[in-house]
Simulated scan of single mutants.
Amino acid sequence: MDVDLTAVRWTKSTYSPENGGNCVEWAPAYASTTGTVPVRDSKSPAGPAMMVSADAFAGLVALARSADL
């Protein structure tokens, strides 16, 4: 399924470093209206986005919080 995400407002993860590096962005407004969370690599904003369910995204966040990163 192709989804047009060009007008979506992206938010950088609070776990992403200030200097760039490995950054993940997600679109909370899109998620709140659809129940699907777009996730992308901030270094490649024109690249693909991974679409995950809200439950799957919550699991990813929980994993990131619990991991020794």
Results as ranks from 00 to 15, higher is better:
K12S: 05
P17H: 07
T11W: 04
N19Y: 13
A7H: 12
A58P: 05
T34H: 00
G20Q: 03
V24L: 11
V52D: 13
T33Y: 00
W26T: 11
A7V: 01
V3L: 02
K43M: 06
R65E: 15
G20T: 07
A27N: 03
A62T: 15
S42A: 11
T11S: 07
D55Y: 10
Y15H: 12
V24T: 06
W10Q: 00
G20A: 08
G35N: 08
F57H: 14
D55K: 15
N22S: 06
M1G: 10
P28R: 01
M51C: 03
A67D: 15
L60I: 14
G20R: 04
W10A: 02
A46V: 04
D4Y: 12
D2M: 12
A62K: 11
G20Y: 00
A64H: 15
D68H: 12
A58C: 02
V37T: 06
S42Y: 00
S13E: 08
S13R: 06
S32D: 05
W10S: 02
N19A: 05
V37L: 07
A31T: 08
D2R: 06
A29T: 05
T11I: 05
P17L: 04
T34R: 03
A7C: 01
S66V: 12
S44M: 08
S13I: 03
D68T: 14
P38D: 09
L5I: 09
A62E: 08
A46Y: 06
W26M: 08
S44D: 12
C23R: 01
V3N: 06
G21H: 01
S16E: 04
A29K: 01
E25I: 05
M50Y: 15
N19V: 04
W10M: 01
M50L: 15
A31P: 06
E25P: 02
L63C: 08
A31L: 09
V39S: 04
P38M: 05
C23F: 00
K43G: 07
G59V: 14
A31F: 05
R9S: 05
S42Q: 03
P48A: 13
P38Q: 09
